[in-house]
């Protein structure tokens, strides 16, 4: 009798446990599903609204014009004005961040002592944790005034200051991913270079950096991708003027900044003006997706060890 009871409770326990396991499994599945569904939902709405937009505005008006004035009476939908703003600020940021990040990575992996390393690495992480709105004010109230002293004719709102500060923002990603890439270079290659009479610098530039090219490329692309999607800094410091220009001294408007401008304004939903943000959002999404895929491809190469 006792034995039976014991056995049956044992079975109950087992059933309960398996039920619990199934519930937990379902919960995890639900969580995973939520993120997938959210993504699908976002992409779906983007596609839907973009489709509506292109029902009213032709591709030619969108991609064949360089003026962007959808909020004015005289409407132009030349998205190139926004793309150029995004490209310009991102370009300035990567030109700032790549050399600095690479030098930091080389220093950290090849020269820094353990003590210095343990000090610099967390500092970089702090840099990564600063809210972007603070970067924005830093660009507007400190970097731009400084730059105006050296560069005459620099506007108060400009692509240069915003881009440089964005470069500082993406510096930690670039430095840390590049450092990983440099670390992954087998010591046997470095020893090979030393044994051929190479000094430290020659070894770094002729052997270590070329061998970590994929990883550094991936770091750069991810950095650009962050810069392309960055919003707050450019909203605050680059000036919200959709100039089609490659002159970093003047004000520009990026795709992200335009979306903010419309979202914060009093544009009624469902209007053409409102739908522009979805078309711009779609364009932005395609850009960052392409960049992330490129970076992913390069990083996979790194992990596989092929170059």
């Amino acid at each position: 009798m006792n034995q039976e009871l014991f056995l049956s409770s044992q079975v109950d326990l087992k059933a309960a446990r398996s039920l619990k396991e199934r519930l937990i499994k379902a919960l995890f599945f639900f969580c995973a599903a939520v993120s997938i569904l959210t993504t699908l939902g976002i992409v779906g709405i983007l596609i839907f609204e973009t489709w509506n937009f292109f029902g009213k505005v032709s591709f030619k008006q969108f991609f064949g014009d360089t003026q962007w004035t959808p909020l004015f009476a005289q409407k132009h939908f030349g998205v190139w004005a926004l793309i150029s703003g995004t490209a310009l600020t991102s370009f300035v940021s990567i030109v700032t961040a790549l050399p600095l990040g690479l030098l930091a990575a080389i220093y950290l992996s090849e020269f820094a002592s353990k003590r210095i390393r343990s000090f610099i690495k967390p500092s970089l992480e702090v840099l990564a944790g600063i809210p972007t709105v603070i970067y924005g004010y830093f660009a507007l109230t400190f970097v731009t005034p400084c730059l105006q002293k050296i560069i005459p004719g620099l506007a108060g709102f400009n692509a240069l200051g915003a881009g440089i500060v964005m470069g500082i923002m993406i510096l930690p990603i670039i430095a840390s991913l590049s450092e990983d890439a440099i670390y992954a270079v087998p010591p046997s290659l470095k020893e090979g270079a030393y044994a051929l009479g190479g000094n430290r610098l020659a070894t770094i530039f002729r052997v270590v950096l070329p061998s970590s090219f994929s990883g550094i490329g991936a770091a750069a692309i991810l950095g650009i991708s962050r810069a392309v999607g960055e919003t707050m800094i450019v909203v605050i410091a680059a000036g919200q003027q959709p100039n089609f220009t490659l002159d970093p001294r003047v004000a520009v408007e990026t795709m992200t900044a335009y979306i903010v401008q419309v979202s914060l304004g009093d544009t009624p939903t469902g209007t053409l003006e409102y739908q522009t943000i979805f078309a711009v959002g779609m364009t932005l999404f395609i850009f960052t997706l392409a960049l992330n895929l490129g970076a992913h491809h390069l990083r996979r190469n790194v992990l596989k060890g092929s170059l």
Binding site: S188, L189, G192, A195, L196, G198, A202, T203, R206, V207
Partner: peptide
């Protein structure tokens, strides 16, 4: 000069460039 136990040619270089690697490193 030194030759290591495990072959370690430079992966980013061609055969020719590997042979010239020492000169260039110097």
């Amino acid at each position: 000069g030194m030759v290591f136990q495990k072959p370690n040619p430079f992966p980013t270089m061609s055969i020719r460039d590997n042979v010239l690697a020492g000169l260039r490193l110097q």
